[in-house]
């Protein structure tokens, strides 16, 4: 039996008249890397924000770690939020704190460990995220784009979450940094046993890291399954997405 730690049922999101998500149902299995893909404005970030409890859907239900979260009060969701980490697209690091302080912050808030231990653990997470120790004393404004994303990942995993949400982890990075980011995602999954939800439109990332893919188009799930299954899907949006010129990365030729 598979272990589903997150189930979403019939999620609908409307902004005014515009329907961004239309009755989306999905689940997340423990230990998998799920990629949510789709064109710009297809609602993939919205879906991720709903799953990460940052946005309340217009209707629908989300069951997280066996609890119906949308019925809980904000206060009651706090323990659940601690079991999830989020890396925001531009890092969302606190600008007036150093990288080390940024990573220490969740530990400082939620544990009563000594300052020394907290800093050691923050340095550990920094190393896990692939940053040099020297980066710890820098402020976010002094970091490059790739370093900022890594620092954000380090903060996301500070409390050893069970689910890690990554919003566009490789966007805005050069190919080498993007590759390194993919390595990091796989590494985190293997070492910490994390379940990862990935929002991306980077084809290379998709084929390297994703166990399962959800393709969003027109506010609905256009295709779902492993890479092969999604690529083989006959849905128009899937063909457009994977069989375009950029689909070469997944080994699909243009005229197929």
């Amino acid at each position: 039996m598979t272990d589903q730690i997150l189930q979403a049922h019939e999620l609908v999101m409307k902004f005014g008249q515009k329907c961004v998500l239309n009755r989306i149902s999905m689940w997340l299995e423990r230990g998998e890397i799920l990629a949510i893909v789709g064109g710009s404005g297809s609602g993939k970030s919205t879906l991720m924000r709903q799953l990460a409890l940052l946005l309340t859907p217009t209707s629908g239900s989300i069951e997280l770690f066996g609890q119906q979260v949308l019925k809980l009060s904000e206060f009651r969701t706090l323990p659940l939020r601690r079991r999830m980490g989020v890396m925001f697209q531009n890092g969302a690091l606190f600008g007036d704190l150093t990288v080390l302080e940024n990573i220490s912050m969740p530990l400082r808030e939620h544990t009563s460990l000594s300052q020394e231990t907290i800093e050691q653990i923050a340095m550990l997470k920094l190393a896990l995220a692939g940053l040099e120790p020297e980066a710890a004393a820098l402020f976010p404004s002094q970091l490059s784009g790739g370093m900022r994303k890594r620092a954000a990942v380090a903060r996301g995993i500070a409390m050893d979450p069970e689910i890690l949400f990554l919003d566009e982890p490789s966007s805005g990075l050069d190919p080498i940094s993007a590759d390194a980011m993919d390595d990091l995602v796989l590494h985190l999954k293997n070492t910490l046993g994390l379940t990862i939800v990935l929002v991306t439109h980077d084809m290379d990332s998709l084929c390297r890291v994703a166990d399962r893919i959800i393709l969003l188009a027109d506010a609905r799930i256009a295709a779902e399954g492993t890479l092969q299954e999604v690529v083989a899907s006959s849905h128009a949006a899937a063909r457009q997405f994977f069989h375009g010129r950029r689909g070469r990365a997944v080994g699909v030729t243009y005229d197929q």
């Binding site: 150093t98 080390l100 800093e119 050691q120 653990i121 923050a122 340095m123 550990l124 920094l126 190393a127 120790p133 020297e134 710890a136 004393a137 820098l138 402020f139």
Partner: peptide, 10 residues
């Protein structure tokens, strides 16, 4: 563990 020795301070 070698990275945790002395966290650099700003």
């Amino acid at each position: 563990s070698d990275s945790t020795d002395t966290p650099p301070k700003p």
